[in-house]
């Protein structure tokens, strides 16, 4: 349908009936084809990739012209969809574990994380607290979340990538406290989830619960999601609290090898991912509240991205495969510690 209209437009000037300026086809339209890349991403990146995709299409030197379409959902659900045949050219997910799951089925080369700079992670984020304006419950650090009368909103770690980062950040903090240990962390997590009235399935669902429906006193959220909620719903309604320690969330990206090779879209797909590490996208990322990889951009936006101690999944938990098995698999720590109220 779209195609027909374009070729019609291209044919019109030949008939001499339309001013050339109006119907001047772009080079790719003359070729008659626009290649559409599909980016399977996770929930909170909608706004980010709307900007990035437009910027990429604008600077791409065809032919063919390239546009980037995207599909968003829970990170785990998106990985599952790609495994089941969603024709994604690239995946930009919340955690490496989900891309590993796709790689395990042979759709992506096993060494995917070494193919791009910074462990294939073009931007990072961390876990922060979003509280009501003026911080009425006086929440400064993780320990304050388990004070009497504090209700915490966080999604379900079984279904949400963001929730797993929340969980591990809390665990890492408890273990780092004086006299801390895994046993102490277990006690803290048990206590923390006693303060969680309900678990939403995804990060965006939790944000909506906290912001729109007014549930809870504090939302454990991606830093980018917390800033976005303030920007959307009013800086006069919410404050962001950075705890003393949090986790370095690295949402990685990869080309889906089998899909791009079938479709013949490897060159633009790889170019799109390389583009994510360039200055223009790093600037977009900062504008959309993701911590850029380029240090000077982080420094220039210190108000958005204050310094705090960040532990990585590799040093604190021995990588995603181990963390997933220990904490979120069947019979993992979450299953043992969480008791629905």
């Amino acid at each position: 349908m779209r195609m027909t209209r374009r070729s019609l437009l291209a044919a019109l000037p030949a008939a001499g009936s339309v001013p050339v300026a109006l119907a001047q086809p772009r080079p790719a339209a003359a070729q008659g084809a626009t290649l559409t890349l599909l980016n399977a991403s996770y929930d909170p990146t909608r706004e980010l990739y709307r900007d990035v995709s437009a910027a990429f299409a604008a600077q791409w030197q065809g032919p063919p012209a390239v546009r980037v379409n995207s599909s968003h959902g829970g990170s785990g659900a998106q990985a599952r969809a790609v495994i089941d045949g969603l024709p994604a050219d690239v995946v930009t997910l919340a955690l490496a574990y989900d891309i590993d799951a796709i790689a395990e089925r042979g759709l992506i080369a096993k060494d995917w994380q070494q193919r791009l700079p910074h462990n294939s992670t073009p931007y990072t984020s961390t876990i922060v607290f979003l509280v009501r304006k003026g911080n009425p419950k006086g929440i400064r650090d993780w320990g304050d979340l388990v004070k009497d009368g504090v209700a915490v909103v966080t999604p379900n770690p079984k279904t949400s990538g963001g929730a797993r980062w929340n969980y591990l950040a809390a665990w890492a903090w408890a273990r780092e406290q004086p006299g801390g240990s895994d046993a102490a962390a277990e006690r803290f997590i048990t206590e923390l989830f006693r303060h969680v009235p309900v678990l939403d399935t995804g990060a965006r669902g939790s944000t909506t619960s906290f912001v729109q429906r007014g549930q809870g006193d504090v939302l454990l959220a991606w830093e980018n999601e917390a800033h976005l909620a303030r920007a959307e719903f009013g800086e006069d309604r919410f404050d962001i609290v950075h705890p003393s320690l949090s986790i370095l969330a690295e949402p990685p990206v990869a080309v889906v090898d089998r899909n791009v090779d079938r479709k013949g879209s490897r060159a633009p797909a790889e170019a799109f991912l390389r583009f994510l590490f360039t200055r223009p996208v790093q600037e977009i990322a900062a504008k959309r509240f993701y911590r850029p990889r380029e240090a000077d951009l982080v420094a220039a936006n210190r108000a958005l991205f204050p310094e705090l101690r960040l532990v990585t999944i590799d040093e604190a938990f021995g990588g995603w495969a181990t963390a997933q098995r220990t904490h979120f698999g069947d019979g993992g720590s979450f299953d043992r510690l969480y008791r629905p109220r």
Partner: peptide, 21 residues
């Protein structure tokens, strides 16, 4: 598969818009 402009029906589009605030 939630592909924008391709496989989103109206009910799915409503959910997407809602989630995008």
């Amino acid at each position: 598969g939630h592909i924008r402009g391709e496989t989103n029906t109206m009910p799915l589009h409503v959910e997407i818009l809602y989630n995008e605030y």
